[in-house]
């Protein structure tokens, strides 16, 4: 049974549709890449799936007993205010908040998990630094570590490698891959890196003027139809 099923989904803002007629499903253990040009509605789709943005029509169904608090999320932009006083440490562990329910304090396991994620993303030396004083790429990694803390069954990543240097980008893809293959976490990722998408993902959802949903191999064969528009974007 599918973890997530979208049928005839129409998304947009305040009644104005960005894109409609989306049909796709994500099964447990899938690695789905969402691609498409700027402004095609990828981020909007992700926000709609997460319940941050109401759908204009159609349906989104969670299956397999997926609960909202088993989701991890890396937003494309976070409107964190410039002068917010918060340490990297405090932010990473806030990803575990969804496991607390009404409990007030983080458990030992939560702390260990946050520590492991910090380690995984090479943030340990920055742990006691103030978030607002980090570089864009470093901030991105902090938010990713937070997303990993929150992800129990599924993780939604909105352009996780944007702003990362080539070395860290490669590491990031490896990390997401191992998360998917070893930890069995379902991945939905938005990316402009078509080559990486076809290399790592099992399924591709292309949105824009032409909508495509299918396996990475099918997408490779059909790519001619999209290549003209997607062009040299990488």
């Amino acid at each position: 049974m599918a973890l997530l099923t979208c049928r005839g989904l129409s998304i947009g803002y305040e009644g104005k549709e960005v894109i409609g007629g989306l049909d796709f499903e994500v099964c447990e253990g899938d690695y789905l890449c969402i691609v498409g040009e700027n402004g095609s509605g990828k981020s909007t789709l992700m926000k709609t799936i997460l319940g941050l943005n109401p759908p204009l029509g159609g349906s989104i169904g969670f299956g397999d007993g997926l609960k909202q608090n088993e989701i991890g999320y890396l937003p494309q932009q976070t409107d964190v205010q410039r002068d917010f006083p918060a340490l990297v440490k405090e932010i990473v562990i806030s990803g575990c908040q969804n496991k607390l329910g009404l409990k007030p304090f983080y458990s030992k396991e939560d702390k260990a998990r946050a520590k492991a994620m910090t380690e995984k993303l090479g943030l340990t030396p920055l742990e006691k630094r103030c978030y607002r004083e980090l570089s864009g790429g470093q901030q991105q990694r902090v938010l990713l570590a937070r997303a990993l803390c929150a992800a129990e069954k599924i993780i939604l990543l909105d352009e996780p490698v944007s702003g990362l240097d080539p070395l860290v980008t490669a590491e990031m893809y490896e990390l997401i891959e191992s998360l998917n293959k070893e930890d069995g976490i379902t991945v939905i990722m938005i990316s402009h890196d078509i080559d990486a998408a076809m290399k790592y993902a099992d399924k591709i959802l292309h949105i824009g003027k032409n909508v495509f949903f299918g396996s990475a191999d099918e997408y490779r064969n059909a790519k001619g139809a999209f290549a003209s528009r997607e062009g040299g974007e990488a």
Binding site: K47, L52, Q68, N69, T78, A86, E90, S94, N98, P104
Partner: peptide
């Protein structure tokens, strides 16, 4: 305040993330 300190932090720092992940 003490009881909800961690929740207040999460909601203040990034409300959308909190909401998206089921807080």
């Amino acid at each position: 305040f003490i009881f909800f300190y961690n929740k207040i932090f999460a909601v203040t720092f990034d409300e959308n993330f909190a909401r998206a992940t089921g807080v």
